[in-house]
Amino acid sequence: MLSHLIIGASGLYLGDMLFIAISFIILMAVIAKVAWNPITKMMGDRADKIANDIDSAQKSRQEASDLADQRREALSHSRQEASDIVSDAKQSGEQQRATIVSDAQNEAAQYKQNARKDIEQERQDALKNVQSDVADISVQIASKIIKKQLDPEGQQALINSYIEGLGKHES
């Protein structure tokens, strides 16, 4: 069996060696063309794609967390703003109320003062009227007294008439 191993006995089977080597190389070339190159290329592509996917996933996660932070900040901001607005409104309402009340008070005081002035004026007018009336009546009385002074009857009558007139005037 092993006799063909001995060089010279039946010749080293160089033909076999060549045949093996060549068929192996052909097999290698065919496998490279049919399977090895496309599959290793695809595996490389897949590795790239996975790496890219991981990168982009990381990026999107970062973006999402950034956005969430922004939203949170905006929310707290708007909450602050809302409370500011409410307190502003409260303050301005308070202020308005105060001004309205003080205006009303001023106005009322003004009215009161005017009324008081009017009353005073009226009183003065009335007093003046009375004074002129008194003067008139005094003058009339005096003239009537002077007219009836000559005779006593006449004077009596005058006094009576005067008294009557006074009573009439009074009633």
């Binding site: 080293l12 045949f19 093996i20």
Partner: peptide
Amino acid sequence: LGLTFNIANDISI
């Protein structure tokens, strides 16, 4: 071509 081939080996290969 002066080379010895073992047919059994070659067929198996």
